[in-house]
Design a binder for these strands. Sequence first.
DNA 1: GTTAGCACTCCGCTGACCCGAGTGCTAAGA
DNA 2: TCTTAGCACTCGGGTCAGCGGAGTGCTAAC
Lengths: 342, 342
Amino acid sequence: MLELDARKQEILRAVIHTYVTEAEPVGSERIVQFLRARVSPATIRNEMAALEELGVLMHPHTSAGRVPTDQGYRLYVDLLLREEQPSHRERTRLRRLLGEHEEVDRLAGAVAHALASVTDYASVVSAPLPERQLFKHLHFIPLGSTQVMAVIVTDGGGIHGRAFDARERLEPEALDRLSRVVSQALQGYALDEITEDLLARMVDEAAWQQRILLAILEWLRERLRAAAARRVYIEGAANILKQPEFRDARAAGLVLAALEDEHVVAELLAAAPERDVWVTIGSEHRREELRGTSVVAAPYTMHGHVAGALGIVGPTRMRYGRAIALVRYLALSLGEILGETS
Amino acid sequence: MLELDARKQEILRAVIHTYVTEAEPVGSERIVQFLRARVSPATIRNEMAALEELGVLMHPHTSAGRVPTDQGYRLYVDLLLREEQPSHRERTRLRRLLGEHEEVDRLAGAVAHALASVTDYASVVSAPLPERQLFKHLHFIPLGSTQVMAVIVTDGGGIHGRAFDARERLEPEALDRLSRVVSQALQGYALDEITEDLLARMVDEAAWQQRILLAILEWLRERLRAAAARRVYIEGAANILKQPEFRDARAAGLVLAALEDEHVVAELLAAAPERDVWVTIGSEHRREELRGTSVVAAPYTMHGHVAGALGIVGPTRMRYGRAIALVRYLALSLGEILGETS
DNA sequence: GTTAGCACTCCGCTGACCCGAGTGCTAAGA
DNA sequence: TCTTAGCACTCGGGTCAGCGGAGTGCTAAC
């Protein structure tokens, strides 16, 4: 890691702050102003030249001011940044936006919406991983003479349903009985703990309905497989078109197209769930298309287990301090809400 | 309505076709080429001047070719257009994209995705109106000692769930009994037919659980109120950034911001459900922000009732023939799928 | 009614020019 | 050794004139 003396740190911070708000290369004069420093612009210039040498600042062209490099942002984020906690008003506003929710999925959408509405960036949220949800209840609902819908309710208010064809006549009473047996047997298991063994034991007990249970087993397996392509919500994509770095619609289109791809977003949100908040800056992205953007993301938990993640996508010229605080705050809030409805 | 002789119609059609594919004002020479006409450019020029007089063509500036006006597109759509049916390959592709679906909501998302992926435009789809779905089953699932989750299953695979606090101890057996009573009583009603009267009668019969039923009644009322803000899906927003008319990201941002607003989209899709396909062109939009776009939309049905709508949003310079055929095809397909799972 | 001919208009591109911002360097001062 | 004033230098961006070309509208002849 680079070593910077106190003054260089101050200057780097000043360049970043100014550049983030003004979106234009910042010159030495501007820095003197910003820092109310007793030194002359020339001194600052010398320091900036040194910072450029170190690779944290750069020069669009000879007679322009300085601009932070991705490395500069990295240094800033890791060492220099002060978080900007959301104001009390903002917090109540956010809480209200998350206020009413019915199902878990909608809640994730609400978080995405809230996050986008208080920033000028796009937001992404992944819905809680189904396999971490606890099984509460299974109920069979007759649809036709041989068709049946299986509904699984999990804690946190998650509901999963799927229609099956049992290929044989089903009596409502038998289905009710089966519902009760299965519900009791699986109560309290996390969805990913429901293994073939467990189901096999049930199948023995309720041999008279093997076929439907096997179908459900298949369904559960499928759900786990589908977890990679889990549901993600993106909001405020139009926000990033406001940013001057995306004034060119062609470039912006590539970014938006990437964000519309669920796989890309899932990858973004799966990055480093062991940290509370993580930041990926410009060229650090694996995806070419995202190299002009930064992502600030955080995992959220449900009963102490990581269940999903949420994040902000914006230009590298981002208000990191604010983004980080916001993401952290919403991840915590979401965790609390998901926890209490269990 | 304007009367155009055959040749003028041909020329208008030629201008639109050429402009739609090339995105540049088209001159008289180009038209002669396109029509393989025996007449000279000068003749075409005279005709084009007449068409301009009639208000269906216009002139960006003196020495440019002609461009259709919104009125010109309107005439074209109403009278001159030939639908371009999707190819067999496209149809199978679309069918496959709608292939696997679990819940109704996901299906709407899949349609939006499919529609966006075969065009260069954005697509919008509204999820089936909950109040038109038929009640199938209600089940109460105990969450805690006094908490209970009510799950309503409708035909077409719709699932709605909501947690309630009954404020009194609830026995699982009592809940089961209540589930059965209510399910039987409401079986087959459309959600919007479940009135207070109907519930009131049930409340009498099952007086011992009034409180929870009243809460459910409240919930249903709420759902109907929320129908205005029904769920809409938008996909392929990045597509419209590819269009040359939105090369300026600022202008494009306004359109995207509008499309991110569920109310705006709901309004678009609620326009004229009595027609099978409807087209709104540029300045015909009520919303200022959408005056640069055209929307091609169609309602889809469920058991013969209109349940929702889907549409394409693109620049006024749109391949209307193709858009209309695609929208119609998908609306029909969706109706079929929703019908058969009942 | 059609068409050849032609003058006219106006966009968009190019290159010249200048202005201003901000730099890097040098040399003097603390 | 660090700081600073002074200054030449560089380069982007804006303005402006000039032009080439596309496409028109008009006129007059067929």
